[in-house]
Design a protein around this nucleic acid. Sequence first.
DNA 1: GCCTACTATGGGAACGTTCCCATTTGATAT
DNA 2: ATATCAAATGGGAACGTTCCCATAGTAGGC
Lengths: 350, 350
Amino acid sequence: MSATPRPATILEVARDAGVSKTSVSRFYSGERDRLSQHMQQRIAEAAERLGYQPNPMARGLKGGPSGLVGMLVADIRNPFSVAVMHGVEQACRAQGLSLMVCNTDNDPVLERQHLALLTSYRIEGLIVNAAGRHSEPLAELASDGLPLVLLDRSLEGIAADEVGLDNNLAIDMALDHLTEQGYRRVLFVTELPTRASSRQTRVARFESECPERQLAGKVLSLDLDDTTCLDHELSAFLDTPDGHPAAILCGNGQVTLAVTRALQARRIPLGDTGLMGIDELDWCQLVTPGVTTLAQPTDAIGQAAVEQLRDRQAQPIAPAPRHLRFTPQLIPRGSTRREQSASTTDETSP
Amino acid sequence: MSATPRPATILEVARDAGVSKTSVSRFYSGERDRLSQHMQQRIAEAAERLGYQPNPMARGLKGGPSGLVGMLVADIRNPFSVAVMHGVEQACRAQGLSLMVCNTDNDPVLERQHLALLTSYRIEGLIVNAAGRHSEPLAELASDGLPLVLLDRSLEGIAADEVGLDNNLAIDMALDHLTEQGYRRVLFVTELPTRASSRQTRVARFESECPERQLAGKVLSLDLDDTTCLDHELSAFLDTPDGHPAAILCGNGQVTLAVTRALQARRIPLGDTGLMGIDELDWCQLVTPGVTTLAQPTDAIGQAAVEQLRDRQAQPIAPAPRHLRFTPQLIPRGSTRREQSASTTDETSP
DNA sequence: GCCTACTATGGGAACGTTCCCATTTGATAT
DNA sequence: ATATCAAATGGGAACGTTCCCATAGTAGGC
């Protein structure tokens, strides 16, 4: 109905309090200790009266700190990303920072566009969960000195802090668990590893560790949109029993979902054929015997990312990139318990 | 390493092109038709050369259009919210708008805070999926003339556009389906309806429609954190068989998750006891016979929200609030198919 | 030829901050 | 006393835009 009533400005507060705008500015720029008690009180009162709130636009124009942190998420519909984002949010809140999240939908063009938006808003740091192995604009930003944290992957030619799962450890834990449960053949299903370094790391570790454990390991990397391929490869793997119990290890939540669907479509009971996934999901305990997972400490990861940003900001001269690797938590469930499917009773007795 | 190289300004472009900054400004403010062809070309070239990009801060300061749309999400971990958000994003992109999303975590204080941030960035419209029934700051914003769209709920004392599910229709469809499948007793489980109007609408419709269909309806509203309450009430409902087949209707995805967990903990097979949920989720087809759902057209809802915003922006004088109600899609699955377990009316089987 | 009207351009004052540089105190050291 | 210094405050020039209001030219109507 009415036109927007212009919010109070610093000048009005200053007039109302009978002081200079500089003092009010100081009051709001964390230089309160330079002001006398008396002045602080008068400013606080005037500001309260007028409902004053600093205008970040004007602040940003002049080059002051924006209190803004940007976050680039490759796929907002990935529960892992959302969970980490939640951790990031909490940490930002605790630090008095505001978070601006952009979803790139795995599209480099969008990424570029959002990056432009974020930088134009003078973000003080950027947390990236990007697609791809390489990003020109990101590299540029990093070399311009913008504090940067890479989530769950590294990017070629960018020396930035990295926060994520300890991928080697995760694979080791998964293989240990599967070995313990008596599986001797493992199929590692992952999305295209060319798209993310963490996937590559996992694949590499898987390939080097399987022999160590006398496991017959095989890697299947695919585009999740192509479901026929998954079906086909799954059949190929499962239809050559060779007497050894087989298990499938899924590289992330999306894969776990796709594989579980495929298995269910072929009416393959879980447990007998082992199933294990990286990333814990809502439904993992719901689908029949439960799906064993390696849960990532998403909150901790998000929080650590913000902390890294702050550290780097505080440093006058950029320190060497640090890599933080978190330990996953094994949540064992029925999908990797063989004894329950009593058909194959073997060496291990209760 | 190096200090951030200051991006080019409008003045530099103007100098480089040998024109005035006003002309450059016009070039970027959608007034190109006021410029001669020759001038347009020169500006375009100079801008290209210098990699110029308008600074939205400075633009926002002066009061120009920000091209920004804000979105307030009550709970980012709710897949429904994320799905709608995705639709909103797409629509914004198509319109050349930027989206700024804030998660309020169902906290009024946070909501207030984020609202302040968004308004300070001069958003041109706001899409709200808020917690609570009433919001002072929101009401204020709305009466100040900010285009506002309420997602999936209305707010007391706010006359804004609303976009969401046709709740009455949804309840009708659910009850029709359950009746058809032969269920005669229905428990409607919902989160606290005091928190959202859409929940209240659904409850009201449920209560008025059950008698019409000769259904024995009962409403259970609860705080999802309190799992013991759910267990207890579920027992009470299911342990008084009275001979009539019973079903549970879940008010949203979170409830469906909680109820499914509870049922599974008590080893109650689905289908025999009916289960149906509003909101489609990843796992609904995975958990054993499949969970019947009413899927919301989330993309369409998100897109409609942005469209509403644009419409309202275009209108010089605020039109009467419009309410857009979408039709859900019934996805029937095993959890509401009785005949399959019709052989045994026995409830406690291994 | 002169007034008006319109088109294409440019100058400069905002917008609300921050921050550099005063200026005004009062205290302390010489 | 005077010089020095720190603490407390204020004035005013940026920051990069937009937009109001000139200023030229150019055309048409009388």
